[in-house]
Design a protein around this nucleic acid. Structure first.
Lengths: 208, 208
DNA sequence: CGCCGAGGTTAACAGCGTTAAGCTGGAGCC
DNA sequence: GGCTCCAGCTTAACGCTGTTAACCTCGGCG
């Protein structure tokens, strides 16, 4: 026995490992059960269904992502803070590609259910809500007169920043290993692209 | 005539419709067959499997995407051309979200098979290879001294541009309908973000 | 005429997530 | 101690999926 531990937590451990290595949809409940050493239906005594299992893993990861922003939030200058949040986000995506894929690259009804659950979670800990942290930083930058006239809507600017970070991570996950493209280190690309974007948005600003 | 047409092309038509409306994995072969008016196994007389069917649709769509760049390529200024390519790309993604998802948001072994097939295709028609069109435009801009010192690698700059466009489209597909976010019109966001990014990359350039 | 392959049929298979029904052992209570 | 009860597990099975096997049918052709 590599330690009985709680069956429930062992299910989570095995599932996380299999989801990350084999991918989510090709990981079967029976395979998870085999890894835990039980039968497949036993899992349903601990989780409603495969989605609930996945959801629990994702919430954990989202929390970890949120927690990792703590350092970035201490950057005083709002524009610098936006960059630091972006880089933290990119690092998270590159470090946990499989979970990133489920969290941010998979559209479906279930993700609505997830979002509902997460939304409830985040209400309790607003300092972990990545998107709204960006909105806050952007708002601060705008109020400080750091952005140009076309970049005065915090929501839109936040979405643009998120888009930039997400785009590079997502492309890395899908295409990095493809042979027809000479894929560059996404961390460096991310740093430069965020910098370029922020510079471009600062053009024409009152307090550049 | 909604007439008989070719069974093969009718399969393609029905599949495209169902894939786009119901989503790909929740569209069953039996449903496609029902739409065509045959039995499911009949499909296998025309396509090796569901992937082959999907692949054929994707190749068609990629061709259409490639063709839509023709207009953008006539823009003389290389920096303006990059922006126009980007906007064309974004419009394509927003117009065909389901196919975009399969083409650019789905990592798996099959997509490697697809890419191999597409690569062969594109060798014959290089003017349709979206990525290399961007690389060309970027190279032209760099040679004209339009970009700053950190933006002299055409591959990296092309990947940054692609990332920006892809990010907004991908976020739109996954999160636009979510309630916890006030999602802005992605076309406008795309125009402004590409503009900001290009401006930022031009900073410190010899021929700004 | 004979045949033969393209294009279709129905039946079936293995694998999936999931559910139903039943067993078991230990905690809680009188 | 004896009783109940239920969490936690079992095996069997269901309905669905993509896919295959085996068979039919019919038009074109030497």
């Amino acid at each position: 026995m590599s330690g009985p531990a709680d069956t429930r937590t062992r299910i989570l451990d095995v599932a996380r490992e299999l989801f990350a290595t084999q991918g989510i949809e090709s990981t079967t409940m029976r395979a998870i059960a085999a890894g835990v050493g039980t039968s497949a239906p036993a899992i349903y005594h601990h989780f409603a269904d495969k989605d609930a299992l996945l959801r629990e893993l994702m919430v954990t990861d989202l929390r970890r992502l949120g927690a990792s922003f703590a350092r970035a939030m201490r950057v005083p200058d709002p524009v610098d803070r936006i960059r630091e949040i972006g880089m933290t986000y990119v690092r998270f995506g590159l470090d946990h590609p499989q979970h990133y894929r489920v969290l941010f690259m998979t559209p479906n009804a279930k993700s609505a259910a997830l979002e509902a659950e997460v939304a409830r979670d985040l209400e309790a800990t607003p300092e972990m809500d990545a998107y709204h942290l960006v909105v806050q930083a952007v708002t601060a930058a705008i109020e400080a007169g750091r952005f140009g006239p076309d970049y005065q809507d915090p929501e839109r600017v936040a979405q643009i920043c998120w888009g930039m970070a997400h785009g590079l991570v997502a492309l890395d996950i899908v295409f990095a290993k493809q042979t027809w493209i000479e894929w560059r280190d996404p961390l460096i690309s991310a740093e430069r692209s965020i910098r370029a974007m922020l510079r471009g948005m600062q053009e024409g600003a009152p307090n550049r």
